[in-house]
């Protein structure tokens, strides 16, 4: 079914989808991020650059947390890159669907920067009902709204945190791990849940034994254990 065959209808659809849950979520989560950057004593430019340049809360938090923990630049960058590995399969699933009617273009390399879990999920859901030549339009409108909300949230959080009573300011910072946990738990796939749950205690343990390498060790050891555990569970299920 092609519900949206005109450019203006697609614009409206994208607006309607983006205003509401995605924008509010991004505004709120990036407010938390902005306040964390401020309270960590880091400059405003870094907050904005991380939001627009990384554009994924997990990687942004990894950047600030690992830097404040005193890790060397190399390990911080490696950690951030690993925290964002999910972008590869997301893009691989997304691009062919968005570009079904047109050849690949260099613009794809710019457009992909705006992809986040929100625009990814909205695109996969809506593309089948949007005229193929208009899908890119939907994505751009949706993603620009999301990115604006996220950037605004970063600004509000960075400058607002200092003006608030201490408990509320602390609440904004506390929002980071909580947001992060429910957004990831919302992925609803068993492999990712297993890896999250296996990783949690290891994160604490490695932080106490080897604070410099804690996240990388957690990732490699926890990820490998989780993979084995998942394969085992899958094997048992298919055998029964």
């Amino acid at each position: 079914m092609i519900a949206s065959a005109s450019a203006s209808a697609v614009n409206r659809l994208a607006w309607r989808d983006a205003i509401g849950f995605p924008s509010i979520t991004l505004l709120a989560s990036m407010t938390g991020f902005g306040s964390l950057v401020h309270e960590s004593g880091l400059p405003f430019a870094m907050a904005i650059a991380a939001t627009v340049g990384i554009w994924g809360l997990p990687g942004q938090l990894a950047l600030v947390e690992m830097h404040v923990a005193g890790l060397s630049v190399f390990f911080v960058i490696l950690g951030v890159a690993l925290a964002n590995a999910r972008f590869l399969p997301m893009v691989v699933a997304f691009m062919p669907l968005m570009n079904e009617a047109r050849p690949k273009s260099r613009w794809d390399f710019a457009l992909v920067q705006m992809l986040s879990i929100n625009s990814w999920a909205a695109g996969l859901k809506r593309f089948p009902e949007i005229e193929k030549t208009l899908r890119r339009r939907y994505y751009i409108v949706f993603a620009v709204i999301c990115m604006s909300a996220g950037t605004l949230g970063t600004v509000i959080g960075y400058f607002g945190v200092g003006l608030m009573p201490r408990p509320i300011a602390l609440g904004l910072i506390f929002m980071n791990p909580l947001f992060f946990a429910v957004l990831l738990a919302g992925v609803q796939s068993r492999p990712s849940m297993i890896a999250l749950v296996v990783g949690a205690p290891l994160g604490i343990m490695f932080h106490l034994i080897a604070p410099d390498l804690d996240l990388l060790l957690t990732g490699v050891v926890g990820g490998t254990l989780a993979l084995l555990l998942n394969n085992r569970l899958t094997g048992r299920q298919s055998a029964s």
Binding site: L61, V68, A83, N84, L196, I204, H207, L215, G223
Partner: peptide
Amino acid sequence: VFQWVTFVSYAMLGGLIARMVILPIGPL
């Protein structure tokens, strides 16, 4: 290989969340 990288990424994030809650660095 990619499957492994995904598991590594999520385990790392699980560890980061736990650490931010239980052993935070900074104002918390």
